[in-house]
Simulated scan of single mutants.
Amino acid sequence: METNYLQHIQEAAQWIRQRLQHTTPQIGLILGSGLGDMAGQVDNPITIAYDQIPHFPVSTVEGHAGQFVIGKLEGKPVIVMQGRFHYYEGYSMKKVVFPVYVMKALGVRSLVITNAAGGMNRSFQAGDLMLISDHLNMTGSNPLIGVNHAELGVRFPDMSEAYNRGYRVLAKRIAEQMRGAGTPIRLQEGVYSGISGPSYLPPAELTMLARLGGDAVGMSTVGEVIAARHAGLDVLGISCITDMAIGEELEPLTHEQVVAVANKTKPMFIELVRNFVKEVKI
């Protein structure tokens, strides 16, 4: 465990709490590449840049604004991470998940985690959304390595249901209602393969991950989910499938292409998340 990790979490949470005007967020949202506009849906927002918060890392990735937006969404108090941190940025995995523990300390009980991902399942297509049912941690690290602080969670947290089953059922019902109302949403469900990045994978590694049971691949999320479950938070994970990553049919890809597809999918994504926040029982 990093030196003074628990103390730093408490100090960061206290600094934020003093600026919240007695608001206690109950739902946290972590927004991935190209999905940050969701923060614009928050009512009466309080915006706090990461670089103002004691001990906080700073987001360095294009498409990540690097700030908390705190307020209400569908009448419920939320805290939104408009931009996240990644292992490939050079941060330790403990630093990557630091905001998860800070959100828990602020009062968050449920976490919606989103990302942009490449689709490895041949039945998917770019523009789909995928509910994450489980993950493969292929990052080579785990945020819980080191001394465990009981104040954060148990030494050996259970991961048998890392992504809340009831949340997934609710999200699928909402998607059905959206389709019934004319929204052309394609909601898949599958296993997210988390890699360290930052390079996109070569064909052989994509083929390997698909054979291991992965349906989508990306460079985030798994560390945050491990920390969230360690902290006792319930998690809904959603991937925006921005490209197809079929090893045998791989084509060149840029980050700009990923963000462009995420931007096209954004209205459906926002509608799904808003309705989830509206209907979920905390």
Rank of each mutant, 00 (worst) to 15 (best):
E2N: 09
T3C: 04
L6Q: 07
H8K: 15
W15F: 15
R19L: 02
L20S: 10
L20N: 10
H22Q: 15
H22L: 05
T23E: 10
T23D: 05
I27K: 04
L29F: 02
G32C: 03
G36T: 02
M38D: 07
A39H: 05
A39R: 04
G40P: 06
V42G: 11
D43R: 13
D43G: 05
I46N: 07
T47F: 00
T47E: 15
Y50D: 08
D51T: 00
P54Y: 12
H55Y: 15
F56A: 10
P57Y: 09
G63M: 02
H64C: 05
H64Q: 10
Q67H: 14
V69F: 05
G71P: 10
G71M: 05
K76M: 03
R84N: 08
E89G: 04
E89M: 01
M93H: 13
P99M: 02
V100H: 11
A105K: 13
A105E: 15
T114D: 08
A116G: 11
M120P: 06
A126S: 15
A126L: 01
G127N: 12
G127K: 10
M130K: 11
L131W: 10
L131E: 13
L131R: 11
D134Y: 04
M138S: 12
G140K: 09
G140L: 03
S141Q: 14
I145Q: 14
G146K: 07
V147I: 06
N148F: 00
N148S: 11
V154C: 06
R155H: 13
R155K: 14
R155L: 06
F156W: 13
F156G: 07
D158M: 06
M159G: 13
E161N: 14
Y163K: 11
N164V: 00
G166F: 03
L170R: 12
L170W: 09
R173E: 15
R173G: 15
A175G: 12
G180N: 14
G180S: 11
G182L: 00
G182Q: 04
I185F: 03
I185K: 04
Q188F: 00
E189R: 06
V191Y: 07
G194C: 09
G194P: 12
G197N: 07
P198D: 06
L201A: 15
L201H: 14
A204H: 11
A204R: 07
A204Q: 13
T207Q: 14
T207W: 00
T207H: 08
M208H: 05
A210V: 00
L212P: 10
G213N: 08
A216P: 12
A216M: 09
S220H: 08
V222A: 04
G223V: 00
V225P: 03
I226V: 15
I226E: 13
A227T: 05
A227R: 06
A228V: 01
H230K: 06
A231T: 02
D234S: 14
A245M: 10
G247M: 02
E249Y: 08
E251P: 00
E251V: 03
P252C: 01
L253M: 15
V259A: 09
V259C: 01
V261W: 07
A262E: 07
K264A: 11
L272G: 08
N275E: 15
V277H: 03
E279R: 13
V280P: 05
K281H: 12
